[in-house]
Amino acid sequence: MTNVIENAGRSVRTALAGAGDMVVFGLRALVSAVRPPFELVETLRQIQLLGWRSLSLIATSGLAVGVVMSMHTRSSLERFGAESMIPTVLGIAMIRETGPLVTGLLSSGRLGAGIGAELGGMRVTEQIDALESLAVDSFKYLVVTRVVACMVALPLLTIFFNVSAIVGGWAAETTVSGMTFGYYYRNAFSNIGFSDLIPSTLKTVVFGFLISSISGYLGYNASGGAQGVGQASTRSVVLSAISLIVANVVMVKFILFLFPS
């Protein structure tokens, strides 16, 4: 009995210590990001790898989500005869919440797993040690560049997601009602204010930070060979997705507090 309690206590302590480490790791990345020297070329390379290469995934998902949301919105608004509201409803839903959140979750899958596995792989094959042995600050070179790249890429990906979702929504709508694109996008933006677009897009910077610092932490500190790499990758996705959702709740509350609609 005492053993069980002891074990439970130990795992709680380990979990808390791990969380604490993770927070320190993330903050260290932020501080290091603003201190010279800057790994500019490597950061750009990471933006290309993490951002540009996710673009097709994000754009395709955006289109699909737009189409599906448009169909759902239509079926419920049709009952009130409010089909003309479809673009408006879709625009609000996408830009305020669905766009940022879905982009974040997709990225926590694509980028979180990628960073976790890549850094984990580099750790267990001693590539990180090799970097250090070559007088390179591996934390700065590997982690900070990815954190910065993700923080830049996420809002951009969100914008691309929103745009393709609106295009997808229009495509679905025009096949049914023949609505013109001009009418569609003007209406999509008809109920959106700056306080809808700007905070919700910028909050994905936080998503980018969470994804990259969590998966960076797990990958950078991976151990135990191929199995350890797989574990780092899986846990990166799970932890970053969960933390992202929780952070989203907090941020939405905060945004609504700052910009009551």
Partner: peptide, 17 residues
């Protein structure tokens, strides 16, 4: 500066893949 004067050959070479 110290590391710049020391080379290290890792067990499995640790090439950046």
């Amino acid at each position: 500066p110290v590391r710049a004067k020391v080379g290290f050959l890792f067990q499995y070479a640790a090439l950046f893949d």
